[in-house]
Nucleic acid binder design. Sequence first.
RNA 1: GCGAGCUUGGCGGAAUGGUAGACGCACAGGACUUAAAAUCCUGAGUCCAUAACGGACGUGCGGGUUCAAGUCCCGCAGCUCGCACCA
Length: 871
Amino acid sequence: MSETSIIFYDFQNAERYWQKEWDKNHIFDVPDVPDPNIPKYYVLEMFPYPSGQLHMGHVRNYTLGDVVARYKRAQGFSVLHPMGWDAFGLPAENAARSRGISPAKWTMENIATMRAMLKRLGFSLNWDREFATCQPEYYGQQQKIFVNLIKEGLVERRESWVNWDPVDQTVLANEQVIDGKGWRSGAPIEKKQLSQWFLKITEFAQPLLNGLKQLDHWPERVKIMQERWIGRSEGARIRFALQNPPSDFDDALKSIEVFTTRPDTLFGMAFLAISPDHPVAVQLAKNHPDIANFIAECHQLGTSEEAIEKAEKRGIDTGIRIAHPFISDQTFPVWIANFVLMDYGTGAVFGCPCGDQRDLDFARKYNLAFKTVVLPKGAQEDQFAISDVANTEPGIAINSDFLNGLSTAEAKTAMIQRLEEMNIGKRVVNWRLRDWGISRQRYWGCPIPVIHCPECGIVPVPEDQLPVCLPEDVDFSMPGNPLENHPTWKHVSCPHCHGPAQRETDTCDTFVDSSWYFARFTAPTASSPVKDQAVNGWMPVDQYVGGIEHAILHLLYARFFTRAMHKMDYLKVDEPFAALFTQGMVMHESYKDANGEWIAPEEIERTSKGAIKKDTGEAITIGRIEKMSKSKKNTIAPSTIIERFGADTARWFVLSDNPPERDMEWTEAGVTATSRFLQRLYRTIHNVSQQVPITSVKNEPLSTAASDLRRITHRTIAAVTDALENFAMNVAIARLHELTSALNDAEKSSDQEGMNFARREAALNLSMLCGPFIPYMAETLMNLLEPNTQMVVQRPWPIADKSLMAATKVIIAIQIRGKLRATIETTPNMDENSVIELARKEPAIIKFLEGKTIIKTIYVPNKIVNFVVNG
RNA sequence: GCGAGCUUGGCGGAAUGGUAGACGCACAGGACUUAAAAUCCUGAGUCCAUAACGGACGUGCGGGUUCAAGUCCCGCAGCUCGCACCA
């Protein structure tokens, strides 16, 4: 048996050992207030919801962040890299209802399981900073911020439509309503008006939009998604008086205001359309059963995208007519139309069929006459007519009285000016962004720190009475909000008048919890939400890593909260995340049996004839590669991988296969290949440590083999560093493979001069470069090479020596008319004429140049000679 | 409908405008072994051709710029994702 066959990396012992060493030395701890003499770097991954199970998506996310954190540490930065738990939310309550476990206990047990997994994966986290958002120490501070938001005028309580589940007696989020039914109860969902708490994010609409421009290190598509979500549009509001208002209309209902981005098309108006939820429609429904029916039908229509897509334009004529500000001899009908949205603009539009496809469809359907008021560029007025396609492009105004002949842009300005003079309209900026409703009628969330007093109204809980803690003796057997049902919790005395009063029983949307946790991490035990020097010392987060699914909500809310906190002097930055990286999903093949049931990967076996089920031998269909999910049973538990192959294997594989922003496929072959490589790396370094004792190393003249190895070593240092700067972990890993092979091959020429030095150098640098990726093995390798000295995590990142990277010979491509015809080998930086001379003497080139004239010769030093010929 | 991204061998992918296919997977052949596993070595874009040398084609498709294009520009197609009756 050869010596090498028994050398085997024992990952279990290594992981336990190095974990302890790092902990003991507090390697990853940093102070609340960063040392001003050391550059700071704040790395953060989106903190997890403690479901109890770590999945491969987490492994990929946190490994990416950890590589950055370890790399920056080695480069001399003081790195803040914390971890916590987004611990409020409905699953804990569901567990309580179905299994009788208290949400707190369930959550804390899940956290313990997941924390243990994260520790095994070797992430360089500052665990002292850990917190869970469900702890009063955290949400109590959040309540302080909330009270200040009230003082700042950024909180509002108002009526709003919600999805109400009449069985569970709770409000549901849109995504919890499936086909119009509650996701848990299956009961038809009702639209209900409830008093809700809102955070006035719309007050920051413009700054949030402007701020996107500074975010140079955010993915373009995330910025575009946010921009569209905020949705700024410029236009005008125009008020139309009703000609014949019904007698039961009060003054507010006697006119209808519309929002338009095309005031220039006002002369093309054919009708006015209001939303089924518009106050005028609601009032009319009271006395008109047909209108009430129509509105009810509109509400029944599904809200799914597909339903909207297919829904045809429908409406009902209200019989009400309005006057046109500039067309005195004509009035226009007011229709209720199913395509007008109540929550955008004013809930009413004027219909201009020639310039809007929806309006055109509507006019055709109900035979409403209209005029064409915009002539496209280059069209003849007497020949141009609208058929079935509206013209939404700018052009020249026609049939439009005082606007005639003006361009669309000029006409808009002229019209708005006229409307403003007449005091019936004005220029406005309209936003798609709406205020953030944060009320949830649930138990497991941060209580909104407010008291309702019959005498004093709404009274914020005074700071010295915070936190408002969740009661622990809660009954989940009744439907509805357990806080509402609790016998004593909500009954308190008013902080003002000391009379009997009631606590607010709504809790916060969990997105609130995650909107400032990154600031709290800088001083997690501070007695105020943040500590001045800590938060301003560490913020902003230099690199944020997470999933694209949070491109809008979480990231927008966090940006808003940071601005609000800045306004309230909690901190001094506007943008919380200087750089954002969004990683792809982890996918896996899916499998189905003959009955179409999903089959888990561990139940199948692949044979030459295809896949079969292990226990029964029945044939299995191999399906598409899909995102790992429980429902498709195609998940691989990180715990089983870590137990079989070790944490380093899992880490290396999730990084090695493809660029991190793309979706990756988890494969058994990939894992075993990774595991094989790591064993080879271990053997390679082990052999160096055995064959090249430290004492034998002298810096002696280098043989070709030795200087070749040194060149590869230094080129690898440069390439890996460069790849890490560009988040190209897969490329870095390819280069580490190359260095490993080169070092392995070098064993053959170990007797050459200078080889001891070159091999040691390669091995040491290889160990260092591997540190961010496979931290346990890197320490093990370093300890083989230089036992009981500094750990990898204590050593600086290697710096490439450029003078050693230069080649001793270069291969130059010889092209004829840009086509490769031969290559020649020269010394580097040989002078142009000599290279060209050599090139022309090359047999293959002579052949190609025969009978032709060289018109031009291109020379790119050390790379290319290109002969441009004719004939 | 609007927007973004992607398209390179059997597969994942690499490539500051300068030798396309690095690195890895899968595959094939060989060494070691009683055998297997593990390990090591070798091969491989496609097509044509050969004893050998060699040649043509080739980065979704069609154009363009350039001495030179996977890379830059214009147009098109397909796939993926996001938003979606936003007036």
